[in-house]
């Protein structure tokens, strides 16, 4: 599985406005809806599910990164949105630092393996300092998509 297999190209938000964890999650779920990956009528329910998951423990994993996620019956395949927050978002992260990179995942409940492979893929790349640095420096959706492609091809 590669990043470009599940990151929705139309759901890349390179300039998330300053705000809260909830506004960030809402904006990212909206981007997936606008890209046609989820239905408008499912949007609020998905946001609620992701926020409920955050109540169990923040998905802010340190290094300025958060991976909010949920399993939801509205999708039949793993999908993800990416957002960059230049001003940082308070995600109640484990290290107490703001979040600048957000990967939001939605996966079907009956395919836990896909969910694990999505998390594996994202985690593997986030361990690469070059990937995190270049991602934070990206200005446009095209920049980010190109970076994901390079990461998939082990060109970083």
């Amino acid at each position: 599985m590669k990043l470009c297999d599940f990151v929705v190209q139309g759901a890349i938000v390179p300039d998330l406005p300053a705000g809260t964890k909830e506004t960030a999650i809402r904006a990212m779920v909206r981007s997936l809806q606008k890209a046609g990956s989820i239905k408008a009528e499912d949007e609020e329910n998905i946001v609620a599910a992701i926020l409920k998951r955050e109540e169990l423990g923040s998905t802010g994993i340190g290094r300025g990164v958060a991976v909010p996620h949920t399993k939801h019956g509205s999708t039949d395949k793993l999908i993800a949105a990416i957002a960059l927050a230049k001003d940082g978002v308070d995600f109640a992260s484990l290290d107490g630092e703001p979040v600048y990179i957000i990967f939001l995942l939605i996966s079907p409940p009956d395919r836990p393996g896909d969910h694990l492979r999505g998390l594996e893929n994202i985690s593997r790349h986030l361990r690469n300092d070059h990937f995190c640095k270049f991602l934070r420096q990206s200005k446009t959706s095209d920049d980010i998509w190109e970076l994901l492609t390079e990461a998939d091809n082990n060109e970083l």
Binding site: I61, R63, G113, R124
Partner: peptide, 12 residues
């Protein structure tokens, strides 16, 4: 390391 553990992708 949470990040490293996630790279195991260990299914049931």
């Amino acid at each position: 390391s949470l990040l490293e553990l996630l790279t195991l992708a260990a299914e049931q």
